[in-house]
Computed example of a mutant assay.
Amino acid sequence: MIRAFVGLPLPDACAEALGVVQDRLSAGRDVPRDNLHLTLAFLGAQPESVLEDLHGLLERVTAPPMTLRFSGYEMFGGTKPRLLAALVALNPALQALRAKVRRAAYSVGIDLPRERFRPHVTLTRFAGLLTSGEERRVRSVMEGAVLVPDWPVEQMVLYRSVLNPSGARYDALADYPLAPGAPAF
């Protein structure tokens, strides 16, 4: 079984800018800059044969390159925040690409949960409750002005997620270029 997901990798300029935000936090466990991404579909643990079938379908997914914009920061988890994320503005091309990926996953028998799509890049995970001082510091960082450049998306990637005591490591299994002129919907 391979734990996997389909996502959009961040370009270096965006990862570096978001790294500045991480450096200012001093709370939680930062996601390594090489692991920063936007998840289109978390696939869970799947047999290799299912991922091979999915790969064949993802190779046929057509979508144009797009530009994404960051729209702020949010702590997810309500009164017990579990992570800090950089929010990505939702746009029709991103929604359409996600829908195509999810349809491909369903087609090979992967049962994905129904959930509202909140595009984001996870920056830091919090292991437990934040102290009031940590929460104030995180909120202060969230309000600080770190300019993150627009994100030109030219490919999506099928990733393997390997869990270890220091956190997850993501390895690209295959990438799928987005094609200029491809229909967005």
Score class of each variant (00 low, 15 high):
residue 45 A to T: 05
residue 110 I to F: 14
residue 143 E to A: 15
residue 153 V to T: 04
residue 76 F to Q: 06
residue 82 R to W: 15
residue 49 S to L: 08
residue 96 A to R: 01
residue 22 Q to S: 07
residue 21 V to T: 12
residue 130 L to Q: 03
residue 114 R to Q: 07
residue 48 E to D: 08
residue 1 M to G: 09
residue 69 R to N: 12
residue 117 F to C: 12
residue 13 A to D: 15
residue 79 T to Q: 15
residue 116 R to I: 08
residue 166 S to K: 13
residue 58 L to R: 02
residue 168 A to F: 08
residue 111 D to V: 08
residue 124 T to I: 04
residue 135 E to I: 05
residue 185 F to A: 13
residue 184 A to L: 15
residue 92 P to M: 10
residue 46 Q to C: 09
residue 93 A to W: 11
residue 85 A to D: 03
residue 129 L to A: 15
residue 137 R to H: 04
residue 142 M to A: 01
residue 49 S to Y: 06
residue 164 N to V: 12
residue 112 L to N: 02
residue 33 R to C: 11
residue 175 D to F: 09
residue 79 T to L: 09
residue 114 R to H: 10
residue 142 M to Q: 04
residue 145 A to V: 14
residue 48 E to V: 01
residue 77 G to W: 13
residue 72 G to D: 12
residue 6 V to Y: 05
residue 135 E to T: 07
residue 84 L to D: 03
residue 23 D to R: 14
residue 33 R to W: 10
residue 121 V to I: 00
residue 114 R to P: 05
residue 93 A to P: 06
residue 128 G to C: 08
residue 45 A to L: 11
residue 86 A to N: 01
residue 184 A to D: 06
residue 163 L to W: 06
residue 109 G to N: 08
residue 169 R to L: 10
residue 118 R to C: 10
residue 19 G to I: 01
residue 52 E to N: 14
residue 1 M to Y: 03
residue 175 D to I: 03
residue 133 G to Q: 03
residue 8 L to P: 11
residue 12 D to R: 15
residue 53 D to M: 13
residue 88 V to R: 01
residue 169 R to W: 04
residue 174 A to V: 09
residue 140 S to E: 15
residue 9 P to M: 02
residue 106 Y to N: 07
residue 118 R to W: 13
residue 33 R to L: 14
residue 34 D to G: 13
residue 47 P to Q: 14
